[in-house]
Design a protein around this nucleic acid. Structure first.
Length: 572
RNA sequence: GUGCCCGUGGCUUAAUGGAUAAAGCAAUUGCCUUCUAAGCAGUGGAUUGCAGGUUCGAGUCCUGCCGGGCACACCA
């Protein structure tokens, strides 16, 4: 694994500074291309400690860097105290072969640390929808990204297969079951799940068990219907995820945790720490709290960890709240020894973040942070008009509906065209559009074009193999070529930034930028035939350029691999 | 009422606390005898919601407002 170019410079700059300040020292490309290839803020960081003006300090440092002329060219101090420099041409050209390496961009950021990423974790009471798809993609891409940078990643799905909702689900299913025999009585269960999918599952029960459960008391069928409903729905959920290319390593069941007594165990240990007590919750403020009655409840002291109120663990009927089993679940994750934990939740779970972080903090003695990524809503648009989601009106758009209409790769990419904490429009028309508006197409087009160059090469130079870095004389590359090479060489820095900040969307944005530079380069060949990749009269330079192109393909392939989509060599 | 997220050209967004805030769409002007014009190059368009604060430096961090979204159960 090669150390990326920018890191070599960063390490050098950092080595000039006290360890305490290394965090603050940056090495990155300057805003203005003309300023140089890299820039550092080291003078500004140190000016306070050394009590010298940043510019003065910068000048001094520049003098020192200039002495290392084999690595620093045109070193200059600029306005507030930035130090800019160029990478000597030879150094950069020597770096190009690294960019053809399959592992280019890989960097051991994780150093073998293990991270658990929990995402989707949809309630198994119905099919998953657009919001889940976004969580699925973000979580999955972060998993691939962290894996790429040296973490041991476990992708996890938590199944909420316990509690009252499951009973309601089972009753809804039973109603559908009776319907199959024309024996459903009364209205559909209050607050039940009216979706068609339960009809399908009911039919399956009929074909497997006949009318065995008709006319029986609830106690005789409830468990069976619970189990049948959940496993049926989980099959569908897994299938949808699979069509999206999302595959979890671990599925954890809430029901199983409860049956194993994990909740009692975790509460015992919290009790020993004085974090659990019997108490009365304050009346919830806000609109309609008329039904509110005071109850003495078992509470978790989440306020000790920054939550707004303490949270109930046990219902008055003695069963555990969702929160209680979720605490047990997170202890389970902690005890599996993960170094880091990330959860992807829909934005509607925002109110749940503090208490869960409080619990994790308590359970791990503050050793672990639970990083919760809240993923904002997806607004589905059809011809610019919002598709309102309503279960009752039957305008509920499921993940499967989306997957039926739109290619998997397109969905994955589009879901990354926004930061997670901004809501995202998904326009069925636009996402399949083939134009500059559509980033998926734009990037695929760049990749396809690069392949058409390879094909042309073989027509123009019959019998010649596509050159690799060793065959080509890269010194022949000119400034225009180097510009394309520069964006490609930025890939490792982008990977590290995306992984550090846990922001998978950065990969997609980087691809768009790379594609733009490529398209721009391509078009220069229209005005100036010397700027084309294929130069029939100059085999050597053609080879050098093709090496660059292969570097771009390599980076695009790598980035696509992290996003989990396949580059296409030809568009139709 | 309380908590969380968001507020950036007309629209959709980007930007580890860094330099003159960056793209696309829309508007507008050019470029097909050409390795794919499904593209490229240009022009106009911004007091980063408002007011303070922190510091060498704030779209970014803090405080208070304003506006939009989400959530505020013994549901999961």
């Amino acid at each position: 694994m090669q150390t990326p170019l920018f890191l070599r410079y960063k390490e050098f700059i950092e080595s000039c500074v006290d360890p305490d300040f290394r965090e603050m020292v940056l090495v990155e490309p300057p805003k203005e291309e003309a300023f140089g290839d890299f820039s550092t803020n080291i003078a500004m960081v140190l000016s306070k400690k050394l009590r010298r003006s940043p510019m003065e300090l910068a000048e001094d440092i520049c003098d020192k860097l200039r002495k290392k002329s084999d690595y620093f060219e045109k070193v200059e101090a600029k306005k507030p105290g930035f130090i800019n420099w160029f990478v000597p041409r030879d150094v950069f050209i020597d770096h190009i072969p690294d960019m053809l390496n399959k592992d280019f961009g890989k960097f051991d950021l994780g150093k073998g640390r293990s991270v658990n990423i929990e995402y989707v974790s949809a309630n198994p009471t119905g099919p998953i929808h657009a919001g889940h798809v976004r969580c699925a993609v973000s979580g999955d891409v972060l998993a691939r990204l962290l894996d790429f940078v040296g973490y041991g990643v476990t992708k996890e799905f938590y199944i909420n297969d316990a509690g009252k909702q499951v009973e309601i689900l089972a009753r809804s299913l039973y109603f559908r079951y009776l319907e199959q025999f024309g024996r459903a009585e009364g209205p559909f269960p209050d607050g039940g799940y009216p979706g068609e999918y339960l009809v399908d599952i009911a039919k399956k029960i009929v074909s497997e068990c006949g009318d065995r459960y008709t006319g029986r008391d609830e106690s005789e069928w409830l468990d069976f219907f619970k189990q049948f409903a959940i496993s049926g729905i989980m099959v569908d959920i897994k299938q949808d995820l699979d069509s999206l290319g999302v595959r979890h390593d671990v599925f954890s069941s809430e029901k199983k945790l409860i049956e194993d007594g994990a909740v009692e165990r975790v509460l015992d240990s919290l009790k020993n720490n004085g974090l659990i007590y019997e108490g009365i919750l304050p009346r919830p403020k806000g609109s309609d709290s008329e039904e509110w009655e005071e109850h003495e409840l078992l509470l978790f002291r989440s306020t000790a960890f920054g939550d707004d109120v303490d949270r109930p663990l046990q219902k008055s009927d003695g069963s555990w709240t969702y929160f209680a089993s979720d605490i047990a679940y997170h202890l389970d994750k902690i005890s599996r020894g993960f170094d880091e934990m990330v959860n992807f939740w829909g934005a509607d779970h925002g109110g749940y973040v503090k208490r869960m972080q409080a619990a994790v903090s308590a359970l791990s003695d503050g050793r672990l942070n639970l990083d919760v990524k809240l993923v904002q809503l997806v607004k589905l648009l059809e011809d610019g008009r919002e598709v309102k989601m309503s279960k009752r009106a039957g305008t509920f758009v499921t993940a499967k509906d989306i997957l039926d209409k739109v290619d998997r790769d397109v969905i994955r990419f589009i879901m990354l065209t926004r930061r997670d904490d901004v809501s995202l429009d998904f326009d069925f028309k636009k996402v399949v559009d083939q134009s500059r508006d559509n980033p998926v197409f734009y990037v695929q087009y760049a990749y396809a074009r690069s392949h058409s160059v390879m094909k042309l090469f073989q027509r123009v130079f019959p019998g010649k193999a596509i050159p690799n870095a060793r065959d080509a004389n890269l010194k022949l590359l000119d400034d225009g070529d180097i510009r394309l090479a520069k964006i490609i060489s930025d890939w490792p820095r982008q990977v590290i930034a995306a992984a550090r900040k846990r922001e998978p969307h950065r990969i997609a944005f980087f691809l768009c930028e790379t594609a733009a530079v490529f398209h721009s380069f391509w078009n220069q060949g229209k005005d100036n035939s010397l700027m084309r990749f294929i130069l029939p009269d100059d085999f050597d330079k053609t080879c050098a350029r093709l090496v660059l192109l292969r570097a771009m393909q390599n980076v695009v392939e790598s980035a696509f691999n992290i996003i989990g989509i396949t580059p296409v060599e030809e568009l139709r």
